[in-house]
């Protein structure tokens, strides 16, 4: 099974079909995705700025980092769930979308960032407080995090700017045939009535 046929199968499942066919569910999920970004993005921003010494300077780094850790995961879970629902409902369109692919690449980099710096930076916040200095590595991690999340927003917005290749879309073809069949039925029905 190729990735494309997998995408077609995913979006044809009842849940994702229902999301796609409702006029308000998709925008509602997208709104939740963005509302989640605003909750979660603010936390990432504050933690990174604290490491860079630009915000909440009088508070211990460990306090800021540790107290927001769980909330950041909750926020990420909300954003990711909404993202998966949007992806699943239009999987075939996303398959052709270059910005979506770029966004997934950035997401992969964010995971690498988390794996790389979790132990060396985020787990050592209390040490930075004791020594009174933030090492260059921690500032690098914070700066990279800000850059990566900004790229996520840019790629996310970019997705909406790429028109799906309508001639290639499987779902559209089926929809079109369905509509044609329906209008053909109506004509037959009208004919029998007039007779």
């Amino acid at each position: 099974m190729s990735l494309l046929t997998f995408a077609q199968w995913v979006q044809s499942t009842p849940l994702f079909t229902a999301i796609r066919e409702s006029w308000y569910v998709y925008p509602a999920i997208m709104s939740s995705h963005l509302a989640g970004i605003s909750l979660f993005g603010g936390m990432v921003f504050i933690v990174d700025l604290r490491l860079l010494g630009l915000a909440m300077r009088k508070r211990p780094i460990a306090d800021v980092v540790n107290q927001l850790r769980r909330l950041k995961w909750v926020g990420f879970a909300i954003v990711a769930t909404c993202g998966i629902l949007m992806l699943g409902s239009k999987a075939e369109e996303y398959y052709y979308n270059a910005f979506f692919r770029a966004k997934m690449a950035v997401l992969a980099l964010i995971l690498v960032h988390a794996l790389l710096f979790r132990r060396s930076v985020y787990a050592k916040a209390a040490e930075f407080d004791r020594s009174g200095t933030v090492p260059g590595l921690a500032k690098l991690a914070a700066s990279l995090s800000l850059v990566l999340w900004t790229c996520m927003v840019i790629c996310g917005r970019g997705i909406g700017y790429i028109e799906p290749p309508l001639d290639k879309l499987h779902a559209r073809v089926i929809e079109h045939l369905h509509q044609r069949a329906q209008s053909a039925d109506r004509i037959v029905y009208l004919d029998t009535r007039t007779n």
């Binding site: 970004i37 605003s38 909750l39 993005g41 603010g42 921003f45 996310g156």
Partner: peptide, 12 residues
């Protein structure tokens, strides 16, 4: 979008 993520996030 980036702006409201920070603005609303800081209020949140």
């Amino acid at each position: 979008i980036g702006g409201f993520a920070v603005g609303v996030g800081s209020i949140a």
